[in-house]
Amino acid sequence: MIGVELRKLMLRPRNWLTLLLLCLLPFIVAVFLSVSQLAPPPGQGGAFLSAVLSNGELYPAAALAMVLPIFLPLSVAVTAGDSIAGEAGTGTLRYLLIRPVGRVRLLIAKLVALAVFVVVAIVLVAVTALITGVTLFGGGAEAVGQPGAVTSLSGAALSSDDLALRLLAAIGYIVVSMLGFGVIALFASTFTESSLGAALIALAVLITSSVLETLDAATPVKPYLPTHYWLAWIDFFRDPVFWRSIDSGLLLQAGYIVVLFAASWANFATKDITS
């Protein structure tokens, strides 16, 4: 069933469009930066953007920082929201279930397919950004008139290998964050026949969470908000790596994944399929 879900993911033109758009945004920003040579001053603008002009190898991190707040969660919400609700909407859900595909198996296959989509999306953004960055800004030792190494956020120099390792860790962290958010949409998806409705619910959670994040009055609940630790991946680029937020973030997202997947299962397995 997982293979079938992956094939469906691949055969859907909309998913390719989503990936294309995700990769396009950092590319457009890179073109503007390289033409104007006007980087935002350090401490302003997107994370890492001030440093990319001196070393393109840092551009994947900057690209991830660009798509993470809205664009990436949006595409995750649309894809995850479509998982069960989309099948219900086209009527194919009943035919899958009488094929028969067990309801739990279907839900697991949908979650795995979602995870694959998230990994592919993030890796693709990182890889295209790396190519763009190195081509437009030059990378490592080749960067003209600049010290070869990237400076970490804490000031110490990072070698290319070290940077790659940190980037991989950051990608892994973002994947987990997005899955924690995706299960919200998956959960909503088991309640409705409208994939748009399910995506909307997840986005409403995202926006509520972001708004509460800026509110002092909401301090007691902040550590439990799904978006609270999303930016902790930046800590991978400190020297030494600042683990505290990363650990809390991983724990929180794991909690979201376990609880909401169990809730989706409980709802979906006992539900009358009337679509």
Binding site: V4, R7, G91, Y95, I98
Partner: peptide
């Protein structure tokens, strides 16, 4: 269910795929 074939409240298929592809996916599922 593996011994039953059924049509429930009208046919349904993935609209962006061909009929053959739909049947193959269903068979593989």
């Amino acid at each position: 269910l593996p011994r039953i074939g059924a049509l429930v409240e009208g046919p349904a298929a993935y609209p962006h795929l061909s009929g053959r592809r739909n049947l193959k996916l269903l068979d593989a599922a």
